[in-house]
Amino acid sequence: MVMRNIWIRDLNDSAGPFATVVMDATHDTADATEQYRLRWRDLRERLVDAGADDATLAVLDEAVTGAGAPDGTAGRLLVADSARVLLDRHCEVPPERGTASWGPVPDLLAVLSSGSDEVPTVVVAVDRTGGEIRAVDGSVETVSSDATGPVHKANTAGPGEGGADARVEETWKRNAQAVAERVDKLVRGGNAGLLVVAGDAPARARLRDELAPASAEIMAEIENTGGTVPEQVDDTVRAAADDVREQRRVTAVTSYATASGRTDGLAVTGLSGVAAAARAHAVETLLVDPSAVPETSGPAADVLVRAVVSADGDVVQARPGDDVTLSDGLGAILRFPVGPAA
């Protein structure tokens, strides 16, 4: 199963306690820097009142004041312990109100409510000579084959030019094969959930024909005539990633609804039922509606999120409008039944 919430799993490397901060990082006015500083001062005071230690506060001070502000509206999610920042992510939509908490477990419900899971993405711009590839980690490389043949066809037909055109097309094909081989490797190695391909239609088609099925299935295309990653590609990546996230979410919710309608015990709901399944490492997908989790159950729900991710389970945010019933805002699709249904 593709691990979609590995960023949560990384938080398990620390014993805590943890400071969790969700704040508005919007930077679209002349006084945005000063407003950002004031918002952080307010959240910092909440952490002090909650008992956060000086070392953790210092770690967060450096992270908040040392990072460049994004342009436009944005939110920022931070989790830190006394040694380092464990999570630092920007999200496109700022929170309605900032939150700051201190405790033995990160406030993962607040993080889930304000952010979205990452979609590891490979981006490639292709043309007849090869392609420029941006890997999941952001590194960029240019790839082409060792073919030394021509890449341009003759403008006019003439004796022998049919054979020349065939050689040109063979060069194009070999270049596409070289790019596809590298893309497939980066998709596998980066556990990518999305492949964005820019280029003109013939170049994209040649690459698609050479890709492994696993890469072709996650491919999204944009029109671009150059052989370098275009500046506007990030807008396309964000839109395509949103589509991937929503498809995953809807699939999980639908699967839970289907499992809940059966009697085989492969779906449970409520804090106690989900906790029992998590202790048995039986949870395949945990559904959480943070708005429906009782305030007194919040810390327990945070523990459940960590436990499920540690056992290679997935976590999906449910929404109030979904056609499912989640007692305590929690439900789970199980790998195997537990308790009386086992």
Rank of each mutant, 00 (worst) to 15 (best):
residue 1 M to I: 11
residue 2 V to W: 12
residue 4 R to G: 02
residue 8 I to G: 09
residue 15 A to P: 10
residue 19 A to R: 06
residue 23 M to Y: 08
residue 25 A to K: 01
residue 29 T to E: 13
residue 36 Y to F: 15
residue 36 Y to C: 12
residue 40 W to F: 08
residue 46 R to F: 04
residue 49 D to N: 12
residue 52 A to V: 09
residue 59 V to G: 03
residue 62 E to P: 01
residue 64 V to Y: 02
residue 68 G to P: 08
residue 72 G to Y: 10
residue 77 L to A: 04
residue 86 L to E: 05
residue 97 R to G: 10
residue 97 R to H: 12
residue 105 V to C: 00
residue 105 V to N: 01
residue 106 P to N: 09
residue 112 L to N: 07
residue 115 G to S: 15
residue 115 G to K: 08
residue 116 S to G: 13
residue 117 D to T: 14
residue 118 E to Y: 00
residue 127 D to R: 01
residue 130 G to N: 06
residue 131 G to T: 12
residue 132 E to S: 05
residue 135 A to S: 15
residue 151 V to L: 11
residue 159 P to N: 00
residue 162 G to W: 08
residue 166 A to Q: 13
residue 174 R to Q: 15
residue 177 Q to M: 09
residue 192 A to E: 03
residue 205 A to D: 15
residue 213 P to D: 14
residue 216 A to G: 07
residue 220 A to F: 10
residue 233 V to W: 05
residue 252 A to R: 01
residue 255 S to L: 15
residue 256 Y to G: 03
residue 258 T to Y: 05
residue 262 R to I: 02
residue 263 T to N: 14
residue 277 A to T: 11
residue 280 A to T: 07
residue 282 A to S: 11
residue 288 V to K: 04
residue 295 E to P: 10
residue 300 A to F: 12
residue 305 V to F: 05
residue 309 V to A: 08
residue 309 V to R: 05
residue 314 D to M: 11
residue 332 A to N: 06
residue 333 I to F: 00
residue 334 L to Y: 04
residue 338 V to K: 07
